[in-house]
Design a protein around this nucleic acid. Sequence first.
DNA 1: CATTCGGTGTCAGCGTGATGTAAAGGTTGT
DNA 2: ACAACCTTTACATCACGCTGACACCGAATG
Lengths: 228, 228
Amino acid sequence: MQNRVLLVEDDDELRQLLARYLTNQGFSVREAANGNDGLSLALGQNCDIVVLDIMLPDISGLDVLRSLRADTHLPVVLLTARGDETDRIVGFEVGADDYIPKPCNPRELVARLQALLRRIAWDQAVEVDAARTYGDLRVEPSHRRIYQDDKPLELTATEYEVLQVLLAHAGSVVRKTDLMQWALGRRLEAYDRTLDMHISNLRKKLGNDDPPRIETVRGLGYSYRVPT
Amino acid sequence: MQNRVLLVEDDDELRQLLARYLTNQGFSVREAANGNDGLSLALGQNCDIVVLDIMLPDISGLDVLRSLRADTHLPVVLLTARGDETDRIVGFEVGADDYIPKPCNPRELVARLQALLRRIAWDQAVEVDAARTYGDLRVEPSHRRIYQDDKPLELTATEYEVLQVLLAHAGSVVRKTDLMQWALGRRLEAYDRTLDMHISNLRKKLGNDDPPRIETVRGLGYSYRVPT
DNA sequence: CATTCGGTGTCAGCGTGATGTAAAGGTTGT
DNA sequence: ACAACCTTTACATCACGCTGACACCGAATG
């Protein structure tokens, strides 16, 4: 994927240096030497990410960002010579995604750009697998519910956690100590039968099938039978 | 939104300092003093974002991140004393979202955490404000009124806020702490039953149906039953 | 094979903390 | 002063996680 980056920077030398580096790294680069041109290009919806210097000849990079944020959520990385930490806070408050002090290492700039683009790609893919399905069971984290054949199971908070962990590892064994940590949030102590009880109750609510959906792996833990 | 941050840092003093600061800033904080505990907690799906030190007593923070990335896209901010730029590149390549060198200004840490969480919220935002109708209820923000079957409900100001928040998240659980913050504009303190009262009154005004339109999710919050 | 022992299944009851709600108290605006 | 309404108090209720007790089972041991 060829990402389009908009470089807003008034120092010609630095801008051309970065442009060349970014191009070599596989980006498609657009350039602007002042705030107004930058804002105009950014609003043109022809780029995926913006690298924005704060000190610009016409309007401040922060103002460019403010205008941009009035309309879009375009990812923006601020670039600046000022090292003052208060400036950084302001940058983030105005809506920046990242903030790199000059002089910046081009490699770090690229790494941060890619991290940001990767994050966006991940987030937008989330909607797809948000509802996880395992055979006749469907986990809906937002509702905090698990459906069996589209009918909600009446689970308690802890039961939900336990089953959700087992499903997330469907097909493989989850050790009791891990299950305890992940679902109950505490360490498994000796003679603690709590987990066994929750498993027992879960099996009851899931319908005591044979073979059981939740298999016991003696001496180890439990495993949700992967649907075939 | 009360965000849950997991703090993985072996230096007790620094960890507690940051934990306190983050709590003051409205985060709900979980802590781990080594890599294994941190990984375990992170996999437990009980937090929204991770702050991860690289130098840990047992396994490297980078290895923790690698393991995490095998399963999840949980946002991770690396924290480290090393200033070497090569390290940063590696951090990003392994899947970090941000990288802050120590000593870090807590304010900057919070700003970066919030920027990252904001980015995720933006990316995942679907068309929210389009439909302001939920079954037989219709929200009209301009008049601060909610209509049931085109007849206005006689709601007090606070009741309107509470119901409007619940409707905006119809179908998902709204944590009590968030509901308090969003509708009442203040922190939920222990033994504060105000919210419960407003819910009780709302249910009365909405007609005490069965199943109730406003469902209780014990230990978490409430959720408006999505009309089917 | 019989015995032992630790791991597991589960019933029933307890205790704690969360929730529902009536009523009283306090605050604000008119 | 009065009404409206948010908040607090108080009490009843309930959900549910947890534990003790006992039965059962499988593996190891002699």
